[in-house]
Nucleic acid binder design. Structure first.
Lengths: 147, 147
DNA sequence: CATTGACTTAAAGTTAGCTATAAGTCTTAT
DNA sequence: ATAAGACTTATAGCTAACTTTAAGTCAATG
């Protein structure tokens, strides 16, 4: 099964110009073309574009994704390097998830803070609460916001 | 306790120019200055800068954070609007966490894929595995990458 | 009292990742 | 065979969030 750039863009939910940009940046060195120069996308191209999307979602830059594609083009001799790369992305993702959880803790604190302020009609009430008037799980978070 | 822009920047682990930029963009309308025009940062400014950092971490843009700051400046009459805002940030964060988990699933699949390829010396081995040769938790993920 | 280093502003420059434009070619349907 | 719509390239433009630069002022030290 093959696709035009417009069909592949639709399948991936990106603009055709994005795929041309990726090609120009060297992310798609495996692309085939018709005699007249039109790109032919295959199912294997779809799979690698999904991986490109995944790597982007881990925070990787286009120029570093290009290096990964270069490894792929080298074939089996780069298996170790590619495994290493994905292990690093995994570690990076774990950090991002921890950061996001910290952000969530702060947002949860602020939700509690404004719920309490809403009931009282003023932020003075949550502001003046002592540590043991606070819900237990809010104490560490408030302390960190002030530290 | 008060701080210069350099001291506050260090406490927050950002560049002083970033704090000037935030001020210029209207994120710090509460800033006080010395007679000669030098910014004086207080502990309360530190707290609100932490909240600005938190909102940025939820993916909010500077111009939208500015609107939140405007609400804060209105005082108690904007409590409802601020509660609503943090509830929206919470929903947004939950979506981001789900997306990150999907990315993590794909990265985990690729780690398994290259570990298997490494043992075999070639990617042909994981590539040619049928669904029931795959670890159970890898099946749905591989299927999604190909769909 | 002069030097050093931190502060001030306004404005220009940077970076990533697209996105749009112009001018032209290819493909398909009538 | 011609018109519509998708494709091509190269190049310019865009946006967000800083970051740097230039030119100058302020505050603390020897």
């Amino acid at each position: 099964m093959t696709y035009s750039i417009g069909e592949m863009a639709k399948k991936l939910n990106v603009a055709p110009s994005t795929l041309r940009y990726y090609d120009k940046e060297g992310l798609l060195p495996f692309m085939e073309r018709t005699e007249s120069g039109i790109r032919i996308f295959k199912d294997s191209d779809y799979e690698i574009l999904k991986i490109i999307h995944c790597l982007k979602a881990t925070g990787m830059q286009i120029k570093d994704i290009k290096e990964f594609i270069n490894l792929v083009m080298k074939g089996d001799e780069s298996i170790d390097a590619r495994l290493e790369l994905f292990r690093k992305r995994k570690a990076e993702l774990e950090k991002q998830m921890a950061d996001l959880q910290e952000t969530m803790d702060t947002v949860n604190f602020k939700c509690w803070y404004y719920e309490t302020a809403k009931k009282a009609g003023t932020t003075d009430v949550p502001d003046s609460m002592t540590d043991n008037e606070l819900p237990e799980d809010m104490r560490k978070i408030r302390a960190k916001l002030k530290k």
